[in-house]
Simulated assay, not measured.
Amino acid sequence: MRPNFTPGPFQAALALIVALWSAPGLAQTRALPVEVAPVTVTALADSIEAVGSLRSGETVILRPEIAGRVSRILFEEGRPVAAGTPLVELDASTYAAQVAVARADLALAEAEAERARTLFAQRAGTARARDEAVARLATTKAALQLAEAQFAKTRILAPFGGILGLRAVSIGDVVQPGQTLVNLESIDPLKLDFAVPETMLARLAVGQAVDVAVDALPGERFAGTVYAIDPAIDEAGRAIRLRALVPNADGRLRPGLFARVRLDTARAGESVTVPEQALIARHGKTYVYKVIDGAAVETEVSLGRRLTGSVEVVAGLSPGDTVVVAGQQRLRDGVKIEVVAPDGTPAQRTGG
Rank of each mutant, 00 (worst) to 15 (best):
L217Y: 14
R103N: 13
R155W: 09
A113S: 08
L108D: 07
V34T: 10
E114A: 14
R252P: 04
L164D: 02
T322S: 12
D46A: 11
G237T: 15
A45Y: 12
V41S: 05
P9L: 14
L87R: 06
V288M: 02
A19R: 14
G219P: 09
A326T: 12
L144V: 00
I229F: 07
L166F: 13
R123A: 10
T29I: 09
V335K: 12
V34F: 03
G125I: 02
I17N: 10
T6C: 13
L146Y: 12
P189T: 03
L20D: 12
T225D: 06
A92W: 04
L32I: 10
G284D: 01
E185N: 11
G327C: 14
L137Q: 14
L14R: 07
P38T: 09
G334F: 00
T350H: 04
L157Q: 06
L44G: 13
A27I: 06
L108P: 00
I156L: 11
I233G: 01
T140W: 03
G25L: 10
Q179L: 13
D105S: 15
L74C: 08
R103V: 02
R282L: 11
P7A: 12
D193I: 14
T308M: 09
P275W: 02
A202V: 09
V60I: 05
I240P: 06
Q208P: 09
G165K: 02
L190H: 03
L90M: 14
Q348R: 15
G172Q: 05
R267N: 15
V174N: 06
A109R: 01
G352P: 02
V18R: 03
A268T: 07
A27L: 04
P231Q: 11
T85F: 06
A266C: 08
L192N: 04
T126M: 03
F75R: 01
R117T: 05
D188P: 11
A296M: 09
A347E: 14
